[in-house]
Design a protein around this nucleic acid. Structure first.
Length: 711
DNA sequence: GTAGGGTTAG
């Protein structure tokens, strides 16, 4: 019997002592033994004894019967610290942290004083919940009770502050600890590395040396992983070299901890040296080393490195395959990545959420929007549950092609699995809704976020700016300035595109905006200046040539139009073909400008004729300023009717029930003629029509457009 | 009954 139990036993009546002296199996060898013991206790009237009830609580908790345990606690008229602490211990062990804290607060409010046994449990709870304030309060209680010199209390307290990232508090506890060993020192080293404090790391190392505590491989690996995980790449590489220099041979863990930093710094030279070292030490059998090495080559743009390592590694291991998919997509080889992914499926490889998210992100980042959505569906069919990384990876694809239905269902999923607290998920939703024309939903998502970072604010501002809502952008910017966050380049870009002060050196975006205003104002002279700047800044972008040519064409300056066309030809630049997308019944259809091979072309032409006649009858004439060829009027008119956004809208009219809103996206700017035709259709056909072009949103309703005919 | 190290997805 321990010292603590003996005084308790002296107070226990004789009948109860009988239970204690019987073998432990009588209490807790099975749940039924516990229930039997419970029944006997109730019969003997011993249930109100603090120690006996504590043992019962511990036994019930052992079988996760926390309700029974709680009931016992509540039924005792006069529970003691030991009774409460047995439940606190059990709940903490079962990771029911909030409940554990709840029991503690009940205990504390009854005036019971925590002891050196309860306190470590409480600090562990605070550590797991990152509940720094609660932890600090309990620390104060411990100090007031004079219990903060206890080794266990100090150890758990130190751990709690470390987990909460409070290095100052952790260090104060550390300095008072008498049982500092290599384990505690390693934890401290890792904590400082996570904060990027190279100086502190070096100081702790020298303190260890002077107090005769030798750092081991785990200490070094902790330093490496700490620096690496928080993005201190240079520091991670410095410490890797230092460790090697001091004679510690980096092992598998050291190598896989430092390689991500090497890749992020694009230090292919260092990466190759580590590769050589890994071969020499025989570390290339380890799956983490292989994946990290593949990842390093991928980040450094060395595709052959990826393939070579992948082919050398004999095992088909999920992590290694995932690293390959990411490495290939990162370097634009998304088709190759898709090919590999198909092969993995064929070979019945175990594909996890990282595998699916990797290929989904690869597709989304390489313009394969439709594939992205298909893979997202396929993933769920395969029984792999998307997570907080998958959702923000696939949402941009929904935004790009305005696949509102898919975006909404991803939103619904995020709600069901409680992902809305995540800033990445939130920002991606804000962006998706804005691009799908639902800026109000963007605002709703933003308003409901519990915490917001700069990306969330920027997404909302760029959303409003895309919708031409300058006032809103400015008022959001003002609110942003009132927070602790600091607006960055992106915030200012949204603000600038919404208003026109300009404290920065104009870049291609600004000159592009100016060129577009010249088109609106028919200002050829200024347009030529802006276009010249753009030709210098982005000589390979056909957009600025086309825009200037449009301005000439609108003024009937056909010689200038020709000269621009010749210039483009001599530079080998081609006008991007006009292309629009529309979603009909969950499927996205692509329509190309002037495409006469479309299966429904006859119906489309017929419908267009009908609309054209109706328009003429209503007094609208086609706006030939936007026809870009110097040809006869009738031909020009036909070219206008071949514009992809008109084709898409008419296609939508034909293939959806009356009254269904239509959603179209265009890869170029919408032309003025299309704008007035679509405005007309929205009234004539009674449809709400959303058209998103490369930089603006147009919401047509009852013959009017949200942009006020100015874009 | 406290306490240290790894890869691949945004």
């Amino acid at each position: 019997m321990t010292k603590q139990v003996l005084p308790l036993i002296e107070k226990i009546p004789q009948t109860i002592l009988g239970f204690l002296e019987s073998s432990p199996s009588c209490w807790s060898s099975s749940l039924s033994k516990t229930t039997q013991a419970h029944a006997r206790i109730l019969k003997s009237g011993a249930q109100n004894d603090g120690y006996i009830s504590a043992k019962l609580i511990a036994s019930y908790s052992n079988y996760s019967c926390f309700d029974d345990a709680n009931l016992i606690l509540q039924s005792i008229p006069d529970p003691n610290v030991y009774t409460f602490s047995s439940l606190i211990y059990a709940l903490t062990k079962a990771k029911l942290y909030s409940q554990s804290l709840g029991v503690f607060s009940r205990m504390f409010s009854r005036g019971l004083i925590p002891d050196t046994h309860v306190l470590p449990n409480l600090f562990k709870v605070c550590a797991e919940l990152s509940a720094f304030r609660a932890g600090k309060q309990i620390h104060c209680v411990a100090c007031a009770l004079g219990l903060d010199g206890d080794g266990f209390v100090q150890g758990s307290l130190f751990h709690m502050y470390m987990r909460c990232g409070k290095m100052g508090d952790a260090r104060k506890v550390f300095d008072r600890m008498y049982n500092r060993d290599v384990v505690t020192c390693s934890a401290l080293l890792c904590g400082y590395a996570r904060k990027g404090c190279l100086e502190e790391v070096v100081r702790v190392l020298s303190e260890m040396e002077s107090s005769g505590i030798e750092p081991n491989i785990v200490s070094w690996n902790g330093i490496l992983s700490g620096f690496n995980r928080s993005g201190y790449h240079k520091e991670a590489m410095v410490m890797f070299q230092k460790m090697h220099h001091l004679g510690f041979l980096p092992d598998e863990i050291a190598v896989s901890s430092v390689l991500p930093s090497v890749g992020d710094s694009e230090r292919l030279d260092i990466g190759r040296q580590i590769h050589g070292y890994a071969i020499k030490q025989g570390l290339l059998k380890d799956k983490c080393v292989i994946s990290a090495m593949i990842d390093m080559y991928g980040k450094s743009g060395h595709v052959y490195g990826i393939i070579e390592l992948f082919e050398q590694f004999e095992l088909m291991e999920t992590g290694v395959c995932n690293a390959c998919i990411t490495g290939l997509s990162r370097n634009g080889l998304v088709d190759k990545a898709l090919e590999m992914f198909a092969l993995f499926k064929e070979q019945k490889m175990e594909l996890n959420v990282v595998s699916w998210t990797s290929i989904i992100a690869g597709c989304a980042q390489n313009g394969k929007d439709i594939e992205t959505l298909e893979l997202f569906r396929e993933m769920q069919v395969a029984g792999v549950k998307p997570n907080r990384v998958t959702i923000p990876s696939m949402l941009p694809a929904c935004g790009n092609i305005a696949a509102l239905v898919h975006g909404r269902s991803a939103h619904g999923f995020a709600v069901r699995v409680h992902l809305l607290d995540d800033v990445h998920v939130g920002s991606a939703l804000i962006d998706m809704y804005a691009k799908c024309g639902r800026i109000n939903m963007s605002q709703v998502v933003f308003d409901m976020m519990p915490t917001r970072n700069l990306v969330c604010w920027n997404s909302l501002m760029s959303g409003y700016s895309m919708h031409g809502k300058a006032k809103e952008v400015m008022s959001i910017f003002e609110s942003l300035v009132r927070t602790r966050l600091k607006p960055d380049f992106i915030s200012f870009t949204s603000l600038l595109s919404a208003c026109s002060q300009m404290p920065l050196e104009p870049d291609s975006c600004v000159w592009g905006a100016l060129l577009n205003s010249c088109r609106l104002q028919n200002n050829v002279d200024l347009a030529e200046i802006a276009a010249e700047k753009l030709f210098g800044l982005e000589p390979e972008n056909p957009g600025s040539y086309v825009l200037l040519s449009n301005i000439y064409a609108a003024k009937g300056m056909w010689a200038e139009v020709d000269s621009i066309r010749n210039k483009m030809e001599s530079l080998g630049l081609k006008k991007n073909p006009g292309c629009s997308w529309i979603q009909v019944k969950n499927k996205v259809y692509t329509l190309l400008a002037g495409d006469k091979s479309h299966p429904q072309i006859d119906q489309i032409t017929e419908k267009m004729d009908e609309i054209s006649k109706e328009m003429r009858r209503a007094g609208h004439l086609p706006n030939l300023d936007f026809a870009l060829q110097d040809v006869e009027e009738q031909e020009q008119e036909q070219a206008l009717w071949g514009h992809s956004e008109k084709l898409a809208v008419v296609f939508g009219l034909l293939n959806t029930p009356d009254g269904t809103p239509l959603q179209v996206i265009k890869n170029l700017r919408i032309c003025g003629d299309c704008h007035s035709v679509i405005k007309f259709i929205s009234g004539y056909a009674g449809r709400e029509i959303f058209v998103r072009d490369t930089n603006r949103f147009h919401h047509f309703k009852d013959g009017v457009c949200s942009c006020g005919d100015f874009w």
